[in-house]
Design a binder for these strands. Structure first.
Lengths: 165, 165
DNA sequence: TTGAGATTGTTCGGGTACGAATAATATACA
DNA sequence: TGTATATTATTCGTACCCGAACAATCTCAA
């Protein structure tokens, strides 16, 4: 998953390609590992928890957000799920086809659409979420206990940068 | 980008939904922030560096990997880029159409395909990569200097879990 | 040397993923 | 009252994304 080359090898190669430029390898390592970790963890959870229920990663996240905040506007679901409105439209159509979620037009504002889970959707989440969390525990088991809170904090600091812009 | 709800609110809601179950909220916070950070940083870099060159995130990563290791087998490119072989086929077709990369069949092994950059591809990377790194520096500026190496290390620990499985 | 098994890249089908354009609805101001 | 402006979800076009099935190629033992 990480690839066959070490970070040191990669840095040496990059230095060679850009020996005339000043680069911040530490910043590079952080973003590089951030994406490797995210995709590795995501693929792992998709294969070990989500695949049997036929749910994609994004579909699960949307279901999760809805489960917590229902009834909730699509605008909020997209924001909380970290996807665009356009993407959400497609994912919601999938979830409606699978009979896990329902769209309702808001009575107060005709532009808004509210999302709710079906009973099947709620049942699925009650079964899936604990299994999901169990895998998450496994996943972070390689990070020393005393560092986990700090890791979450630093990740949040990364997020905070993009928010202000 | 983070959404309108705080982590504390979310935890309270989740507790309410699953009050009868034991959950590890710290593990949850780590993976949650991991994905938020990855997608936030990715979107930020796509908008601020990649958009003007018409390159997608994945196309850039593939180009980057090829740039460093060329000539390189597609199998390795896929592995290093963190995408599947199937996805790479499409991305490489895009890069060939844009005249940034070239596919060559390996002389020694008829199954293998080697990837190389065109002159245009190399020129693009020499221009793009420093700009990219500059943004990366900006991105990590909110993480205290003395913690950055540790952050990279912890992310690598997350990756290491999925490798063994 | 031939044929079973492994490896590699592509194709296929279905589902994200985004920005831009669009249609429907609501708001504000004249 | 009406009309410009803003806000919302959807549609559209293009590109990614994966697993599974596939065809081409290589390996190695009988």
């Amino acid at each position: 998953m990480t690839g066959s080359h070490t970070l040191v090898e990669t840095e040496a190669r990059v230095s060679h390609r850009l020996s005339h430029m000043t680069l911040d390898f530490e910043a590079m390592a952080v973003t590089h590992n951030l994406f490797r970790a995210a995709s590795a963890v995501r693929n792992h959870l998709e294969r070990n928890v989500l695949s049997e229920s036929g749910l994609s990663w994004t579909a699960f996240v949307v279901l999760w957000v809805t489960w917590i905040w229902e009834p909730v506007e699509t605008r909020v679901v997209a924001l909380e799920s970290g996807i665009s409105k356009a993407t959400l439209t497609g994912v919601l159509s999938t979830l409606e086809k699978l009979d896990f979620a329902v769209r309702t037009r808001s009575p107060e504002d005709g532009r808004r659409v509210l999302v709710t889970l079906t009973d099947a959707g709620r049942a699925l989440m009650e079964e899936l979420f604990p299994a999901f969390n169990l895998q998450e525990v496994d996943l972070v088991s390689h990070v020393p206990v005393e560092n986990r809170t700090e890791l979450a904090t630093m990740l949040r600091q990364l997020i905070s940068y993009t928010e202000q812009a």
